[in-house]
Write a protein that binds this DNA or RNA. Structure first.
Lengths: 330, 330
DNA sequence: TTGTAGGCGTTATCAA
DNA sequence: TTGATAACGCCTACAA
């Protein structure tokens, strides 16, 4: 067993309270005894038990970051941002992989609710996670949301304006190619983000051209992106402008375009969704509608820390604007 | 404040111990009182405080998985494997991002040592992490290692045989192209894994051909992989066989080959390192030397759980063999 | 079947 | 400046 504060007290011949004061640098301990105690603690490599500390102080200094998908390459930036803000305030961050399962998410929220963590930042991405949050909300308010929209539940939320993404993408493509309506290649059309992008994109196209181009959906991975190229050229002739919401689909699509002997951006202009990673492994570098995830994460973390510090009750919803990062594909 | 066991006891008009027994399904409680207590607990949504439980039972049922790099696309599989094994045994897993910094790693090991977690699985990848582990090892034995080799520290370790990777890669390439010695494209030559791969590769080439091909190093990302192609064709003529240890470098290299008007695998045969993800976004699918990370993770987790359960002291080192997964690039 | 009491390892209050 | 002592919320002998 590890050495305890009580052990130190016995060895130093003082009371536990004195040891506690000495270790925590609190006033009311003579330099002499303090030094003796610190030396002893160091010698025996004393490490205060965090469970006991947490119980006594009602605080663990650990926050959890719940992520729905570890393969999403835009998360490392988000994570770094959360960690930076949290560390600065003396908190450590642990990551919880919910893998899009509300059951797993519930498991981690159980830890949160039962004092294993002080707070949690919950990142959306999977639909219908609202239900399990209700329980967790009962007593405390120690959660903030990123990109998760809940109907009724009132929690601080940091949301991307997905509709604005569609609008920006459309405007960008229309700037350069205003003859034929741009095409839209979507992933899972049931997802909130995709619905919004579609709405923004189509509306903008119609406003400018009076009509919108063909829409393909269910195109999420590289193979599907590759394949959709053939569906596209079946009825459409280049030059064409295309908005592909899914990153890996964009990868496959551009590969197909180049394999087909066409040029990007001369024959096909392509715009995707923000992710340094993907933009970089595509050649030419993909033009994207970028999401300010790092900033969102930072502000979400600061909001959470403020809630923990001031026990402030809050449910502010903050919406963030995307922006175009020009690459070589448009 | 949340409701406590003591509150329940008061409300039910019984002793705390009775409530504890009822909630934990222990014998010695009449059906009647038990039901009353459970109903009360349910009504007030009672959630036992894990810090208190942990303190009393000296167990949190949470293990930590320390990862050096969240961008590594072979980790999601490893993580899933750890979670599966841990969950089955009633443990929850949290991920800790050490980001290759021993300081950050030390912070998480501090949590471990101070009872916030029961155990930890530490994944290597960054050099010289050994030092900070020494401290953590003092009292407990609740850590296992994956792909981290330490000189003196005795901990259960689960290691890939990197030298065998080089050997396999060489043998595979030699099978099909035994005229010219295959080329080697390395990432960071200082890393243990790379040194071993190189050793195995070169030795095998020399055994079979009496000589080994040109070696390029410091090629880690897509751009560098793209660029190295030009260095390669400067002095070498296809057909050529190439072993590229870094995944993204392989991506760029193949892109350059195709852009240059050459064919894969007819003109250039390429073999990389295992990762479903990368192999899949390359076309043709990359042939790889696969690392059995999922299996390693599973066995490492089971070892850890066994250590926690039986307090067994152990420092077994288990070495895992890589294997070729044929794609379309060889 | 139930209650009392002590312990887990800290912190914090109040006297001395 | 120090030391008892209670408290944090739970578990677990031991007694009743």
């Amino acid at each position: 067993m590890a050495i305890t504060l009580k052990d130190l007290a016995r060895m130093a011949g003082v009371a536990e309270s004195t040891v506690s004061r000495a270790l925590n640098d609190k006033p009311g301990v003579s330099e002499e005894t303090k030094e003796k105690i610190l030396k002893l603690a160091d010698k025996h490599n004393y490490q205060p038990n965090r469970l006991a500390q947490g119980l006594a102080k009602n605080k663990t200094s650990v926050i959890a970051l719940l992520l729905p998908d570890l393969k999403d390459l835009s998360y490392p930036g988000l994570i770094a941002s959360v960690e930076k803000a949290a560390n600065k305030a003396g908190y450590q961050v642990v990551l919880c992989n919910t893998a899009g399962s509300s059951q797993k998410a519930a498991g981690y929220l159980d830890l949160l609710q039962r004092n294993q963590f002080d707070g949690a930042i919950i990142v959306g991405g999977t639909p219908a996670e609202g239900k399990f949050l209700r329980l967790a909300l009962e007593n405390k308010n120690n959660m903030v949301l990123i990109n998760m929209l809940l109907e009724e539940l009132l929690l601080p939320s940091h949301l991307i304006d997905y509709q604005a993404e569609g609008i920006l993408a459309a405007e960008h493509l229309l700037e350069e190619n205003n003859v034929k309506p741009p095409l839209l290649v979507l992933g899972n059309e049931q997802e909130y983000a995709e619905m919004e992008r579609k709405e923004g994109f189509i509306t903008t196209c119609q406003q400018h051209l009076g009509s919108s181009g063909e829409i393909f959906s269910g195109v999420t991975d590289r193979a599907e992106g590759y394949q959709v190229f053939f569906n596209i050229v079946e009825k459409n002739q280049p030059p064409l402008a295309i908005y592909v919401t899914e990153n890996f689909a964009a990868l496959g699509l551009i590969e197909a375009i180049k394999t087909g002997g066409y040029l990007v951006p001369e024959d096909f202009q392509v715009i995707g969704t923000g992710s340094d990673f993907i933009a970089d492994i595509i050649s030419p570098k993909l033009t994207v509608v970028d999401e300010p995830l790092a900033k969102m994460a930072e502000e979400a973390t600061e909001k959470l820390l403020k809630m923990l510090a001031e026990e402030e009750i809050d449910s502010e919803i903050k919406v963030y604007d995307p922006e175009i990062i020009a690459g070589g594909t448009t």
